[in-house]
């Protein structure tokens, strides 16, 4: 939203088609994400959110179409230290401490050493720095996994349901953190099946059964549907589609 119009979008998805296990998860999906924004990818479980995110980081075998990130094909070498990715299940090493985990991923992207402690503080795990990741609570594990992606200050951050199961205060802290990253120019795609997180995002993409129901700012979508909130808007769009 703060990016000038002339700049190419951070992420460009064109006619993406993904088939998993014989089932068409994404039949034909197109999407453009402007730079420096927080985009909420909202939709029920099974809508294809994780598959789309995997395609954006280049981890997903695609059957057709393409994904371009920062002007490069998704998952190619020039992108690997510019795109951070946090999978839905926390993916760090349970038998390493929080510090060792974050330091390893920092090393891989060539982040400065002082960023390790800084990032651990930023996700609120200062007291758990030397604790084994396997002994963390679910919410702490999610944040440790997040820290491992944030530490390199990537230009694009793909976060798959990062706030699931966190207490509201903490969720608030994390959204503030995402906002700080966006203000520094990072493009974030944050998926969620909790519709009330919509108010935190600059733009929203509603996903259902592998296709885009709506794509725009919350205001635009509310105006378009005449709904009072994101959840209502989603229901209106979904039922309209069902009736058609």
């Amino acid at each position: 939203m703060n990016a000038p119009q002339a700049e190419p979008p951070a992420i460009l998805v064109e006619h993406l088609r993904v088939v998993r296990g014989g089932k068409e998860i994404l039949p034909d999906l197109s999407l453009a994400v402007p730079r420096g924004s927080v985009v909420g990818l909202l939709g029920p479980s099974g809508a294809g959110k994780s598959t789309l995110m995997r395609a954006i980081v280049g981890a997903q075998i695609v059957a057709g179409g393409g994904v371009t990130v920062l002007g490069h094909d998704a998952g190619t070498a020039p992108l690997r230290d510019r795109v951070g990715y946090v999978t839905q299940a926390p993916s760090i090493y349970p038998d390493l401490t929080v510090r060792e985990n974050v330091a390893y991923f920092a090393g891989l992207v060539g982040a400065p050493k002082d960023q390790v402690a800084h990032t651990i503080n930023a996700v609120g795990l200062a007291d758990q720095t030397d604790q084994l990741a396997g002994t963390l609570s679910g919410g702490q594990l999610t944040r440790a996994s997040l820290a491992a992606a944030l530490v390199g200050h990537p230009e694009v951050l793909i976060l798959d349901e990062p706030t699931v199961g966190l207490d509201p205060a903490l969720r608030n802290e994390l959204w503030k953190l995402f906002r700080r990253f966006a203000d520094q120019g990072t493009t974030l795609i944050v998926s969620s099946h909790v519709m009330d997180e919509a108010v935190r995002c600059d733009r929203l993409v509603f996903l259902r059964d592998g296709h885009v129901l709506a794509d725009g700012t919350l205001e635009e979508i509310l105006a378009q549907t005449g709904a009072a909130d994101a959840e209502q808007a989603f229901l209106t769009l979904a039922s309209k589609e069902g009736a058609a």
Binding site: G58, A59, G75, R80, D81, F105, L108, V109
Partner: peptide, 9 residues
């Protein structure tokens, strides 16, 4: 973690 490594440099 392997998926994560494969998305890293």
């Amino acid at each position: 973690t392997m998926e994560r490594l494969m998305a890293s440099p």
